[in-house]
């Protein structure tokens, strides 16, 4: 799911426990201006972006990227999503040029693990065989989300496992 600059500022500000008034004061703007940014009515001045990024603990690149945040992060209990809404995403970009995307809802992964199923070998790479998916699911149950695994194999295959 793509996000906007305003939504990202709002989400990260709340995560850091900063109010709109505090942010406005530290940036030398009015709280209404911050509200407008967060509602995507207007954008912050380009000169303010480094300060905003620093305040919310990310880089300007990450702030401007409209891709969802992929780094692994531990969510507190109140922010955790319903496990039914979570998707387990496996991305394989093989050195041969093959691209594989697998999107599995978390409940299916759990049922598969309980049944003793193993992640099948994808794209001829043995790397996935070494990943303990039951451990990953246990970590997701504890609130871990984002990019959990990133591997570049000796063959040049790049494998990513994300939970979103």
């Amino acid at each position: 799911m793509r996000t906007t600059l305003g939504k990202k500022i709002a989400e990260l500000r709340r995560e850091k426990g900063i109010t709109q008034e505090e942010m406005a004061e530290r940036l030398g703007v009015s709280p209404q201006a911050v509200s407008k940014w967060e509602n995507d009515t207007c954008c912050p001045d380009i000169m303010l972006l480094p300060k905003i990024a620093e305040m919310v603990g990310i880089t300007v690149d990450e702030l401007l990227s409209n891709e969802p945040k992929k780094e692994a992060m531990m969510l507190p209990q109140e922010q955790r999503k319903n496990p039914d809404d979570l998707l387990f995403k496996v991305r394989v970009n093989s050195a041969d040029g093959d691209k594989i995307k697998v999107n599995l809802p978390m409940p299916l992964i759990k049922v598969g693990i309980e049944m003793g199923l193993k992640m099948p070998q994808i794209s001829g790479s043995d790397v996935l065989k070494g990943i303990d998916f039951s451990q990953l699911v246990a970590m997701v149950d504890k609130g871990l989300i984002g990019k959990l695994v990133e591997i570049e194999s000796a063959d040049g295959d790049i494998i990513e496992v994300m939970v979103e």
């Binding site: 039914d84 998707l87 040029g97 093959d98 691209k99 594989i100 409940p107």
Partner: peptide
């Protein structure tokens, strides 16, 4: 799950 994620792309493969 189909009710929750209708038309979800389970697998997508693009070969070289």
């Amino acid at each position: 799950i189909k009710k929750k994620h209708p038309k979800l792309d389970l697998v997508e493969v693009h070969s070289a």
